[in-house]
Design a protein around this nucleic acid. Structure first.
Lengths: 360, 360
DNA sequence: TTGTAAGCGTTATCAG
DNA sequence: CTGATAACGCTTACAA
């Protein structure tokens, strides 16, 4: 509780020392914080603007004054109010990241990539979830725009008309993480699910596999692209009628079930391409349980590069996807835009790599 | 670009239609967004306050007016400015979560728990990383306080003096996620690493294991507690001289190395308690590679309940830790505090559970 | 139930 | 390089 001097304080200062506690109980808690910039200015014997400059553009303030300001900041334990700054400057250093599912570890490297890029720039990250559906995304985007974030990263390809309208009218820079090539809002960073799936399918064929199965989750845009890539590869190989697509549930279990399906319903299949999160782990372990030699009886390939895959027996071939880099580059593009820089490429394809290992 | 009416506009409106683009190039991009509340008010033929009420406390506005306001909001594509709201009301609906390492999937359920709790309340989540060190935490906390978050969740036990001071002077509600019991800043949610480690060690002894090794990462407060629990159990069993503590590197590899260590340096060991992230996976796979029967040659227990553990051969015994619940409860406590509610328990022990499976 | 005026703490702008 | 002042867009407090 600090004393203020105002001619006519509408929000009067507290009179009694215990009044603070009472107030806190009555009304929602406040984010007051400690000293204000004007108090720092007073203590340092300068104007608020000099304090503001000393904090934001130190080089524009003479050494002596800057020292005095910074020491006043320390003495008062002043914490620069970025909320007021954003409000006043109409410019925010917070960005919003919308992910399909915060609970999916697959996105961890991406979040980390974003976070690592933002930190040294003094920017901050807000996280929201849009459970793989357009309306949730609309809510998340709306909430972020309400918070007046300086930029947005969306991990999705589809947006509701209302989302598009909001994005358009607010002119907030947006980066989409997603499949490439893509008709984009503005900037996109990602890799091609089509090309990646195709490349891995070709790899399996090249390793002598004749009957390849693709295991995916229920249809969604990403799954569709991977299926297209898979089919395109088979087509190119003249093996169109030898492919099979199966749908699995999420998790390790899904992969195990896929192997069970092969055993029971489609014994001709000699390669399983697991294009859904951790299913390759389940598939490999299930083969071990059934004492199926991998890759002789069933070759296994994974879409996602999980650390465990390197430690299974046999080690599992997978795609290395640029998940961390996607986070980094998205953040970089966004920050560049937010600082008004020219952004050269509008679509950045970060590619992928096949890590050939024991399972194929 | 919208027109404004001011008697003396310091920040003058744009005159030419292409001026916006020019401005955007010169100066950092702005978060302007579309219409303002006063424009909504004008269109609806009411005062700003009525718009504000219609948005924040709809029940306090007569039906007809509310309809008119909401329809004006739609027509203008107005997005409520929470930045200005927070600034004006000195109250924020954003909370900050500081994690030791955003890149560690272990924290995913916790983030998800926080996020799931906040979403229906219309609150938002900012994420920061404090690479297991006190100075980084200080920076993260400082940044969050600068953003005037309404509350803070810290995943750590130790704080720098400057952090403590900031927290104290700003009076922001804080929840710590961490070890229990703990001398806390304010509120703590977690489980006891000591008790969990002790319980699992007792379990291993009960399963007939005589020489138990504990594999941990390099010393940190959590590791220390787990080691204490391990030693306490051995002590209680009169097996104090039969225990062994080994340090491993992060990742699957660490667990594999632990098994190699047992094979080469300490063959008497018949149980390995992996108290560091995914090391139990590595240990189990390495035993398979060496054709060591588990649990006969080496029993394996894990501290963390990873999904894969249920699918390895044998399935791996582990602790179920309340990671998701910790996120939820932390958020719940924090929101309660932020709304000025009485918070009954200051320390919430969410306990743990031993999931007894094939590896022991 | 609705409206009026002051105020939140900073920065943009312009003058010195 | 520094300072005075208005403005940012909303909410609080109070009056009608």
């Amino acid at each position: 509780v600090r004393s203020r001097q105002k001619t006519k304080p509408l929000r009067r200062p507290l009179e009694r020392p215990d009044e603070a506690a009472e107030l806190a109980k009555q009304s929602p808690r406040r984010t007051l914080g400690g000293a204000r910039m004007s108090e720092v200015a007073e203590l340092a014997g300068v104007s608020r603007m000099t304090v503001s400059r000393a904090l934001n553009e130190p080089e524009k303030v003479k050494n002596e004054l800057r020292e005095r300001v910074l020491s006043a900041v320390r003495d008062l334990g002043y914490v620069h109010n970025h909320l007021a700054r954003s409000f006043s400057s109409q410019r925010s250093n917070v960005i919003g990241l919308v992910l399909p599912n915060i609970g999916n570890s697959i996105f961890v490297p991406t979040i980390k990539g974003v976070s690592d890029y933002l930190r040294p720039l003094g920017a901050h990250l807000m996280l929201a979830e849009a459970a793989h559906n357009i309306d949730d995304e609309e809510r998340a985007v709306g909430a972020f725009l309400a918070q007046r974030v300086g930029g947005l990263i969306l991990h999705s390809r589809e947006h509701s008309p209302a989302t598009l309208r909001m994005l358009e009218t607010t002119c907030v820079p947006v980066v989409e993480m997603g499949d490439l090539p893509d008709r984009s809002l503005d900037m996109v960073v990602g890799y091609s699910n089509f090309e990646a799936a195709k490349a891995m399918t070709l790899h399996l064929a090249q390793r002598g596999r004749r009957y390849i199965a693709l295991a995916t989750l229920n249809k969604n845009p990403v799954v569709t692209e991977r299926q297209r890539g898979f089919l395109a590869a088979l087509d190119e190989l003249g093996m169109a009628n030898k492919g099979r697509m199966i749908t699995v549930t999420r998790g390790v279990e899904g992969g195990a079930n896929a192997v069970a399906f092969v055993a029971e319903q489609a014994p001709e299949i000699d390669a399983l391409f697991c294009a859904s999160d951790v299913s390759a782990v389940g598939a490999t372990l299930e083969c071990a349980r059934r004492k199926w030699p991998v890759p002789e009886r069933l070759a296994i390939a994974s879409f996602n590069d999980l650390e465990v895959l390197r430690f299974l027996t046999p080690t599992v071939t997978c795609l290395r996807l640029p998940r961390y880099e996607i986070g980094q580059r998205s953040a970089a593009l966004l920050m560049a835009r937010m600082h008004g820089e020219e952004v050269p490429a509008k679509q950045i394809d970060l590619g992928f790599e096949i890590l050939h290992r024991g399972s194929t």
